[in-house]
Design a binder for these strands. Sequence first.
DNA 1: CTGAAAGCGCTTACAG
DNA 2: CTGAAAGCGCTTACAG
Lengths: 352, 352
Amino acid sequence: MKPDRRASQATIMEVAIAAGVSLATVSRATNHPDKVKPETREKILRIIKEKGYKPNLNAKSLASSKSTTVAVVVPELTRSSIAGLVDGIADCANRRGYFVRLFVNNKLKDGDVESLKDFWSTLMASVVDGVLYINDEMTEESIELIKNSSIPVVLTNIVCSDPEIPYVSIDYYKAAYEMTKEMIKRGNKKIWMINTIRKYVVNDLKVAGYSKAMTEAGLEPIVKNVPGKTELNEPIYKELLENDKPEVAIVVRDSMAVSFINVARLLHIHIPDEIEVIGFQNTKYAELSRPKLSCIETPIYDLGEEAMDLLTKLMDIYDSDDDDNEEEVEEEIDANIYVDYNVVWRESTKNN
Amino acid sequence: MKPDRRASQATIMEVAIAAGVSLATVSRATNHPDKVKPETREKILRIIKEKGYKPNLNAKSLASSKSTTVAVVVPELTRSSIAGLVDGIADCANRRGYFVRLFVNNKLKDGDVESLKDFWSTLMASVVDGVLYINDEMTEESIELIKNSSIPVVLTNIVCSDPEIPYVSIDYYKAAYEMTKEMIKRGNKKIWMINTIRKYVVNDLKVAGYSKAMTEAGLEPIVKNVPGKTELNEPIYKELLENDKPEVAIVVRDSMAVSFINVARLLHIHIPDEIEVIGFQNTKYAELSRPKLSCIETPIYDLGEEAMDLLTKLMDIYDSDDDDNEEEVEEEIDANIYVDYNVVWRESTKNN
DNA sequence: CTGAAAGCGCTTACAG
DNA sequence: CTGAAAGCGCTTACAG
């Protein structure tokens, strides 16, 4: 006889018997402590602790139609700063007693409506109380699905044109605008914006902010689109720099900025004396680059926390919706949040 | 009257009514298709598709005592290569029809037995069919808990001394051993191993492999322990290099190797002519470094896939365990897997 | 091949 | 303050 490896968790029944009460009372002792007499409550809680009892989440969810679980939808964890985002989300979820179900869906970008709908319904069938949606490439269909969702959805690190949809993001437009203005103020006229070939909503905003500042100053916006991958963009950078040279290059991603610096140095272009380079994000790349990269720092971990925080509030509202007096509460919440960014000046810029 | 935002998924009841059959038949049509007459089956399946019906996961799990969900336990997503690992796991899980519940537990390292036990029981209460455990710092207690687990657990990217516990990893010992031997063969005698101050099982293995090769060749192993963080290790590197200089430095993490290169260059030490540098991992840092870093490449994504694959097999066994004839099946599975690594020679080494 | 019924482990009105 | 009972949405022996 080998030991029963399937020996599972203690059940509510066992606790009830040990405490000499009914299931209902055990349940109440954990869910509505005030509704049970202090002495019995304490006894129950003690036994729960002794037995290491935790309510079966599936049963609990089914019975209460609340799962204390949120879905986190990401295209890919290794993409730029998504891991940091999810760390922030997870820590906040932990603190607030939520579980997280992870959906890595790298097909989310393509506009295949069928598979998108299918994805959305498996999301709903997985029974979560809310979803954190991280995806740089929002289609019309996604937006429609989100608006019709029966549970709260918070877009994370995306700015959505539709103000009805809650989001937590960074004001990339403003960040690019302000940075460009600053570099113009410092006397630069020929400023490049280096963007990814591939379209990302977030990067489009950076380009727009940059262009605005340039136009306002009567300067011509010059946007260079290059591949995101190092091996692919280096030859392009080389070609660009052999033909022309800006005074400043603002790059949408810091790894791409480092790559740009590397190519410039290979061509004996001095950074920052000949070209100043600025990146977005401020990951470890910035610190490991030589010269060290000046950056617009996007506090991605905090952003994740904020997003989960907002989602919590929205879930609470949906909860109390069952009762009445909803409208009022809903009004109080600002569901379009911008998290502050910082500028970190390092060696790839002058006059710091 | 605002529309009911809580309008939830179609239920099995609705499908049954629409198809003019009982719940049982709908359930069978999806779970045991062969047990239902082709015509009715097709009709049911059609209706399911039309209505976009997906069984409520909680109910399904509760009724069948299978959740088709695995837990992925990580200390932190932003740590070294964990994001890539989880991407591999998630993709494989997707293909095999499993959901993933994410547990980010950055307190997992500390040996607090109480909180570890508590964590483990909430893990079990969350009702998963298996767990992928990613944690570089395994304590005795963790190992004990895993051995007593009622569901399969696969250690991912860890080598566990206890052969009873299934793991999927990379043979870091061998990788370091072989690399050191190779550099000795190339005529080097003074080879440093640069390790993290903080203890990691995986890094200890690299050090052990290195030391073995050195000792075998009658050379003295020289291990330098430095902080993992760039800002912190750079001054240490500086001090080290001002006093002494190896012919080769093998560094346990590629970001730390890049940092080492940066400091060496600052001191006008030529890489690779004066010092050859080799890192582990081969992340994007290696490619962005100047000179580009030679690396032992650890295929982390594949490792994640392999681990999930193994877990799937183990879960299948546990499943059929309920019947009989278990022993035999179990024998066939190799639950201690090493994934192959590669060596990528770049500019930080000579004679490539 | 199909349906009626019990049961998965909880929660929550409803009485008392 | 507490218990008996119904119900959450499924699955699965058990009959037929």
